[in-house]
Computed example of a mutant assay.
Amino acid sequence: MADNEAFTYNGGKVEPGKTQDIRYGISETYLGDPVRIPVTIINGEQAGPTVFLSAAAHGDELNGIEVVREVAYEWDLSDLAGTLVCMPVLNVPGFLAQQRYLPIYDRDLNRSFPGSETSTGAKRMAHRIYQNFIEPCDFGIDFHTSTRGRTNMLHVRADMSDDAVARLAKAFGSHVIIDSSGSDGMLRTEAAKSGTPAITVEMGEAHRFQRELIDEALAGVESVFAEYGLRETSTVNWPGWRTVISDENEKTWLRADAGGIVDMHHDRGALVHEGDRICTITNPFKDDNVTVVAPFTGVLVGVLENPVVYPGNPICHLVELKDKVRRVVEREQSTSFETPG
């Protein structure tokens, strides 16, 4: 194979066969101290794709941090063909405050890409990240979790109308891919617009490491590396069943019609059939029960973790499974996902 080239960013260079850990300045605090994000660049000796792995664009979403760190520091990358740009914590101010948004500006970093060097503080931060570490890449994976109080099964969100993005999404090997172009300002959306295919991986809940999901995501990264030839030792993963949720599928967030305390009867990833009882909402005296049932047969991509709701609060994200996929899932999920009691 051909020799690799140096990876350059504003202020530095990483030669082939070298690894560099940097804290890259993207803004300043009220005291004029630098706001810096950790970046690890692993540049293989052999030529290949340049790939970014990013996490914690929302500061309280932690699962992806461990995925990116383990790839960078625990995997044997001596045979790497290409370059890895690993950014475990994009939103450092939010991470330090353990909150979703940038506390300095109260803005969503993941609605600020590709950024601007003359606009808001959030967009200036996004601009420095994007110009130096996203735009130079051939493709990338951005890791997220559900927001506080909810949890997601591991799944991919991707614009499947873009062939290059669809290839990446399928290579990751998740059971569920939700087909969406994404909102303006999202990292994956803006990267794809400028020619860097990118996907979002959703996994679990905020404020914690969940080992099972981290391991699933690591298997997905390994599968992607195999698909694009970054590591000879990796193999492409087929998840056993897969469904792409598009406009042809029913999908909905089921919301509470009553306030109270929620007793969930199914976990994330569970298959539920039309008419199945998903949860029961009760008052403190348990004398006024409101049952929430599945309006169609599908899989629970996301469910409530915080067991208290107001009317209108989201309870679960249900996506339809077509008959062929449903039968496969029924065979796989031969044991019930119902919680005791």
Rank of each mutant, 00 (worst) to 15 (best):
residue 233 T to R: 09
residue 32 G to Y: 07
residue 73 Y to V: 01
residue 84 L to F: 04
residue 104 I to E: 11
residue 317 H to D: 01
residue 289 N to M: 13
residue 252 T to L: 05
residue 60 D to Q: 06
residue 268 R to H: 13
residue 337 F to K: 10
residue 285 F to T: 14
residue 221 V to S: 09
residue 328 V to T: 13
residue 158 A to F: 01
residue 236 V to W: 07
residue 199 I to G: 03
residue 205 E to Q: 15
residue 246 S to P: 05
residue 153 M to V: 01
residue 154 L to R: 09
residue 287 D to C: 11
residue 45 E to D: 08
residue 109 L to V: 11
residue 85 V to R: 06
residue 191 A to V: 00
residue 227 E to W: 09
residue 213 L to K: 01
residue 178 I to N: 03
residue 299 V to C: 02
residue 333 Q to D: 09
residue 125 M to E: 06
residue 301 V to W: 00
residue 45 E to N: 09
residue 257 D to P: 11
residue 271 L to Y: 06
residue 71 V to P: 02
residue 178 I to Q: 00
residue 23 R to T: 12
residue 71 V to W: 04
residue 297 T to D: 10
residue 286 K to V: 14
residue 12 G to W: 05
residue 172 F to K: 01
residue 312 G to P: 02
residue 31 L to V: 03
residue 154 L to V: 02
residue 256 A to I: 15
residue 25 G to Q: 15
residue 151 T to W: 02
residue 191 A to W: 04
residue 30 Y to C: 10
residue 265 H to Q: 15
residue 73 Y to T: 10
residue 213 L to I: 04
residue 310 Y to L: 12
residue 93 P to K: 07
residue 194 S to I: 13
residue 124 R to H: 10
residue 263 D to A: 15
residue 293 V to H: 13
residue 1 M to E: 06
residue 12 G to P: 01
residue 208 R to N: 06
residue 237 N to S: 11
residue 334 S to M: 07
residue 113 F to Y: 14
residue 306 N to E: 15
residue 99 Q to C: 13
residue 125 M to G: 05
residue 45 E to R: 11
residue 315 I to C: 11
residue 233 T to N: 11
residue 57 A to S: 10
residue 141 I to M: 03
residue 220 G to H: 02
residue 256 A to F: 05
residue 69 R to W: 09
residue 223 S to L: 07
residue 202 E to Y: 00
residue 92 V to E: 12
residue 260 G to D: 08
residue 193 K to P: 03
residue 181 S to T: 00
residue 160 M to Y: 12
residue 111 R to W: 03
residue 77 L to W: 01
residue 321 L to T: 03
residue 284 P to W: 05
residue 269 G to S: 09
residue 104 I to Q: 08
residue 275 G to N: 03
residue 27 S to N: 13
residue 163 D to E: 13
residue 306 N to Y: 15
residue 21 D to F: 10
residue 113 F to V: 02
residue 35 V to S: 05
residue 25 G to Y: 07
residue 68 V to G: 06
residue 255 R to Q: 12
residue 204 G to S: 11
residue 306 N to R: 11
residue 41 I to E: 06
residue 300 L to C: 09
residue 206 A to Q: 08
residue 243 T to G: 02
residue 223 S to D: 05
residue 5 E to Y: 04
residue 178 I to E: 03
residue 79 D to T: 09
